[in-house]
């Protein structure tokens, strides 16, 4: 099993930490991971992305150009990564971040209205966990109990009271993710 995922959006949407929590959850499941961020000038201009690879074998190249899953949270990221999804792969997007719908017919496309679900939970910061829930519903690459452990490892001890809220946000994402096409 090997899953290559690109997560992309604006700085501040929690793209990097979503990738980190996913990667940590996979470590808790005794899998191999790489987490490779963009750290260049484009990041300083506002967009951020991270490539997470999860595998049950040692990972050779941490650099890939085709992904099993693209999670895109703004228009620039959709433009950049829609065509980088492998045929039969998965694209997840947040409709509030984009101005045009994805057009690929050979991949599974899902939407998650994460902003409003995060707002319902009373904390906009768990936005990224709603999105992570949507992904884990579609591709359950890590078990829920290991996601909990991943959260415990990733969230600094002083915020440990937020672990339950993050877990709840993941559950909301799982509940509300919508598949918009059939392949």
């Amino acid at each position: 099993m090997k899953e290559e995922i690109i997560i992309a959006g604006f700085g501040g949407q929690g793209v990097l930490s979503m990738g980190k929590i996913l990667a940590y959850s996979a470590i808790m499941q005794d899998m191999e991971v790489t987490w490779m961020p963009s750290y260049g000038p484009e990041m300083r201009g506002g967009t951020a992305n991270v490539c997470v690879i999860i595998s049950d074998r040692k990972i050779g190249s941490p650099i890939v150009t085709k992904y099993d899953t693209a999670i895109v949270l703004n228009q620039q990221s959709l433009d950049k990564f829609e065509n980088a999804v492998k045929p039969g792969g998965l694209l997840i997007y947040d409709p509030s971040g984009i101005t045009r719908e994805p057009v690929r017919k050979d991949i599974q496309i899902c939407r998650i209205d994460a902003i409003s679900h995060a707002a319902e939970l009373g904390n906009a910061k768990v936005y990224n966990m709603v999105v992570l829930g949507a992904f884990l519903k579609m591709h359950p690459v890590v078990e829920q109990k290991n996601v909990r452990k991943g959260l415990e490892k990733s969230i600094p001890a002083r915020y440990s009271d937020l672990i339950d809220l993050n877990e709840k946000a993941i559950a909301e994402g799982m509940k509300h993710v919508v598949s918009v096409n059939q392949i």
Partner: peptide, 10 residues
Amino acid sequence: DGVIGQMMEK
């Protein structure tokens, strides 16, 4: 190099 420095792994 920048890849090895910036990449997270186990």
